[in-house]
Amino acid sequence: MTPSYNFAFLDEDTKRMLRRALLKAVAIPGYQVPFGSREMPLPYGWGTGGIQVTAALLGPDDVLKVIDQGADDTTNAVNIRRFFARVAGVATTEHTADATLIQTRHRIPETSLREDQILVFQVPEPEPLRTLEPREAETRTLHALADYGLMHVKLYEDIAQYGHIATSYDYPVLVDGRFLTSPSPIPKFDNPKMDHSPALMLFGAGREKRLYAIPPYTRVESLAFEDHPFEIQRWEHRCELCGSGESYLDEVVVDDRGTRMFVCSDTDFCGQRRAEAQA
């Protein structure tokens, strides 16, 4: 642990500011709370929102897991885990089941989460309407009026053009029937895991200075139409390492003739399954 910095890097005033904002976020599910995001020692866009949320939560009894793309060993996940081991001296793990806090980028673990766990998402763009309306002053008003016609029109135009909704990740959700919310750029495969999750889910967007929350056991609906229900990705393949047919798969190019193989994106899930198969 680096002694010249406060526990978990942030000063106590900043933690209090984050904690107040997090409590309001939980009280208003899916609503983006503006907060005084600080410059962190990692670049904006690299998980500063998630890092600030984690820093506000973290205590000496926590066991922290950090994943990027579902994997514990991607360089940015390693770097963030290393950062907290250095500035907070907390225990870290790669096992989903052993973690009290999980910070993630782009995935929700395959292993079901429990009530005593908290999932922290790194969010690049918290505003689900941003690509349809870049002006913050406008999107605030649309949320105030719960006017999500823009998004429905966009999805409907997809159907008219392609025959189905052409959004494969960062697929917008309606939280508790009120706020249209970005699930962060997780693949839509993970969206159903958010609905009535036993674990609290917190979202931090550092560069955009917004945070939001989805409390446990909260209705989270992926937008859809009656004649075009929401569907998740399916593969014709199984994981070539553990044989799973239910997990999200990464496609890997294994030789210069372009041969592909498919493996689990969640490295802990895959590893556990292989260990069980061997036992």
Binding site: G45, D68, P185
Partner: peptide
Amino acid sequence: VEASGFVQHLKLPHYVDFQAEL
């Protein structure tokens, strides 16, 4: 600091979303 971080974050892995787009 904001702009440089976000432009350069594109070099981080995005293969989960890329797989979804594929």
